[in-house]
Nucleic acid binder design. Structure first.
Length: 452
RNA sequence: UCCGCAGUAGCUCAAUGGCAGAGCAUUCGGCUGUUAACCGAAGGGUUGUAGGUUCGAGUCCUACCUGCGGAGCCA
């Protein structure tokens, strides 16, 4: 090994941008991802979080110490490797590193090898080691796409003059009076609950600031065990004063289009790593506003026809909400997200404005992602009449005193207003083509898992 | 909460009711262009738990535990 001062002469490079240093000697700080050997030739593959690169180490080209150090190095040991960047058509990324020097920061013990191998593993094994699983190229790529989706979502609202107003996470009562909530003691004030939605609170901030959004974690204590559910997930919710349902649907389709096109612009390589091909990117190209709009009645008619043709197993009952198989069938009829609007008021939340054309319907919209990924957005125009809202609260058996502040919003300068919530993890799962939302978040919280 | 599936080596999985195995990982040896490298060798097991049937149970029966994904509910 050369001296520290000698090695420090080489500039640091991230692997993602190492092509800019072709012909130059650089340092890469990272971890040993894989090591192949062929006699007196070593092929260490190093990852640094931005990508991986293969190093070439002919025994004759380096010191005995460098060769022996690398030859016996254990996977996922941390190291700094110095070498010359060379373009090579055999390399997946187009570049390789002719290694000159290596410095090991921490060596993974021989008797406790890195548990995640390059071979296949079961989901439970991987989830139990999520803190290590996320080091693999595919999982890292998913987390990068997630970060871009979150940033693009905020970017859309920020550049369209929305003000971010974050609602409380600890709340005194259920927002909608339906979902199961996580409950805890709150000093001498009785029980508090983890928020299931910030919606009611951002209705208040919308009437103060006009266009607002919130972005934060949301909690549901429902015992859902499916590929679409987490007990803790991230939701971004816009709320707009004076907006009606039509305005809301335009907002939703433009918002989603922006997110998907931003991912396409930045993550072609990651999408390929995640899905193993370019088909997903081709599908995402089509995600451009406007999106198809289907009323509840039209969707029901689609399901009736599908049932008569034997395309769906169970017949949908008019007036009921759509089940998961129903949503999957409807969304599969389109190559873009479909906006299903005007559901029966009876199956929707108390705060939704009735349709003036048919009071049995609510002015609401669910956006269903393609390919059966389910509901990614749910929103509505809100009840703006004091009398109607008060009646709805009473009809739903909710404690009026808990909603006095909410009724104030209709008492003092009430206006029509609308908003929606988008679940980040479902969008990531759809955009990345994943089987399960648990891979879309660094540490998933599900019914049977709160470790690590 | 209901329905279904699964639990065998560190991992992924085999094994007609009849000697518990393979690949990968680990250790050792070989190989100068490997792409989940390859070749040879070695170590590695209370078959989820508790009962039962049987000459004999990984395999059949009962209960339980754990996990999975589907319904419901939702984003």
């Amino acid at each position: 090994m050369s001296t520290a001062s000698e090695a420090s002469l080489a500039p640091l490079s991230s692997i993602a941008t190492i092509g800019q240093h072709e012909g130059e000697t650089v340092r890469v700080r990272g971890w040993l991802y894989n090591l192949r050997a062929s006699g007196k030739l070593l092929f260490p593959i190093v990852r640094d979080g931005s990508g991986t690169i293969q190093g070439i180490v002919p025994k004759a080209a380096v010191s005995e110490e460098v060769f022996e150090t690398l030859k016996n190095l254990t996977l996922e040991s941390s190291l700094t490797i110095t070498g010359t960047v060379r373009a090579d058509s055999r390399a997946p990324s187009g570049f390789e590193l002719d290694v000159a020097d290596v410095s090991v920061t921490q060596r993974v013990p021989d008797d406790q090898p890195f548990p995640i191998t390059l071979k296949e593993h079961g989901t439970d094994f991987l989830m139990e080691r999520r803190h290590l699983w996320m080091r693999t190229p595919r999982q890292s790529a998913i987390l990068r796409v997630r970060a871009t989706i979150m940033r693009a979502a905020q970017e859309y609202f920020d550049t369209n003059d929305f003000v971010r107003t974050d609602p409380p996470i600890l709340t005194p009562a259920a927002c909608e009076g339906t979902s199961e909530l996580f409950e805890m003691k709150y000093f001498d004030e009785g029980n508090a609950y983890l928020t299931q939605s910030g919606q009611l609170y951002i209705e208040a901030t919308a009437l103060a600031l006009g266009k607002v959004y919130s972005f934060g974690p949301t909690f549901r204590a429902e015992k859902s065990k499916t590929r679409r559910h987490l007990t803790e997930f991230w939701m971004i919710e816009p709320e707009v004063a004076y907006a009606d349902l039509g305005d809301l649907m335009v907002l939703a389709e433009e918002f989603l289009s922006h997110i998907v096109q931003t991912v396409l612009a930045k993550h072609r390589a990651d999408l390929k790593t995640i899905t193993g091909g370019d088909e997903k990117a081709a599908k995402l190209e089509k995600i451009q506003a406007p999106f198809p709009r289907v009323s509840y009645d039209e969707a029901h008619a689609m399901l009736e026809e599908a049932f008569s043709k034997g395309l769906v197993e169970n017949r949908h009952t008019y007036g009921d909400d759509f089940g998961s198989p129903d949503e999957t069938y409807i969304s599969n009829q389109f190559d873009r997200p479909v906006m299903v609007h005007r559901y029966p008021a009876a199956v929707k939340a108390f705060y939704m404005q009735p349709d003036p054309a048919d009071a049995s319907k609510a002015l609401c919209v669910d956006v269903l992602a393609p390919e059966g990924y389910g509901e990614i957005i749910g929103g509505s125009q809100r009840v703006d009449s004091y009398d109607l809202l008060k009646q709805r609260i009473l009809d739903h058996g909710l404690p009026l005193e808990s909603f006095e502040w909410y009724l104030d919003l209709r008492r003092y300068g009430s206006v029509p207003h609308s908003g929606f919530g988008m679940g980040i993890e479902r969008v990531v799962a759809w955009v990345c083509g994943l089987e399960h939302v648990r891979e879309t978040i660094p540490f998933a919280r599900t019914l049977n898992r709160i470790y690590p």
